[in-house]
Amino acid sequence: MRYILALTAAGAALALPAGANAAAFVNGSFESGVAPGTYTTVAGGDSSSITGWTATGNSVDYIGSYWQAQDGGRSIDLNGNAQGGIEQTFDTVAGTLYNVTFWLAGNTDGAPVTKSVLVGATGNAGQLFTFDSSSFDKTNMGWAQYTYNFVAQGASTTLSFGSQDAGAYGAALDNVSLLTGGGVPEPATWGLMILGFGGIGAVMRRRRDARASIA
């Protein structure tokens, strides 16, 4: 029985996808980066001002003290001078399901009242999320949590948040987190599992043969 348990444990360990407990994803609450002061506008293509993230589209506003963050002291307005977004590329395991949670609010300084954000990941369909900012202000942003799921298509994935609103008053984004959610096994993983089960079967056959010889 000890041999069977050992083989089972070894097979299970081999079958677990690398990085099953976490992904190489950083700065989900935007606390690391240049000091934004009240706020600072980050132009599209800038990959150094907000650690780990690249601004896309026209620009985003990197918010400091301008309004209440959901987590820590910083957040993002996905519209800087005009429609923008942010994205981050990180290591993933192909075939693994990932769960992205994030918080949205809205810049209440101007229209539209309902802010729209398209969230996407490499090789996966994007999903549109909206936030109604009509009842809130800078001291009470009304942050709400949302979830987006994707299955990694390769060894790296780009996660993106893109404003769908024109103008300078977009959705606010904060506290993005990434967890694995029990992915679809890769072909290599299935192979390791089959090898493990084959080893268990071989041990059981040898033990039966040994008992038959003694009898």
Rank of each mutant, 00 (worst) to 15 (best):
V93E: 13
F102M: 05
D91L: 13
T54P: 03
R74L: 00
T54D: 04
T54V: 12
N99A: 14
G85P: 06
Q83K: 14
S47Y: 11
T101S: 14
Y62K: 07
E87W: 01
D71Q: 13
G72V: 08
W53N: 01
G80R: 05
S75E: 07
G85V: 10
A69F: 05
G72Q: 07
G57R: 06
S59N: 08
I86D: 00
T101W: 07
S75H: 11
A55D: 04
Y62S: 01
Y98F: 12
T96L: 09
G57A: 10
I86S: 00
D91R: 11
G72S: 04
N99I: 15
D71S: 13
R74Q: 07
G95T: 13
G52N: 07
I76P: 00
L97F: 15
T56R: 13
F90N: 01
Q68G: 04
T54I: 11
D61L: 06
A94V: 15
S49F: 01
A69G: 10
G85A: 05
D61C: 08
D71N: 12
T54R: 11
G57C: 11
S75K: 07
Y98V: 09
S49I: 08
V93A: 15
D61Q: 15
G64V: 07
G72H: 09
T92G: 05
A82F: 13
Q88E: 10
G52D: 03
G52W: 07
Q68E: 14
Y66R: 14
S59H: 09
A69Q: 03
Q83F: 04
F90Y: 11
I86K: 00
Q68L: 14
I86P: 00
D77P: 02
N58H: 12
N81T: 15
Q70L: 05
R74Y: 02
N58E: 14
Y62W: 09
G85Q: 03
Q88A: 03
T101F: 04
G72R: 06
Q68C: 06
W67D: 05
L78V: 05
I63N: 01
A69Y: 04
F102G: 01
L78K: 01
N99V: 15
Y62M: 08
A55W: 04
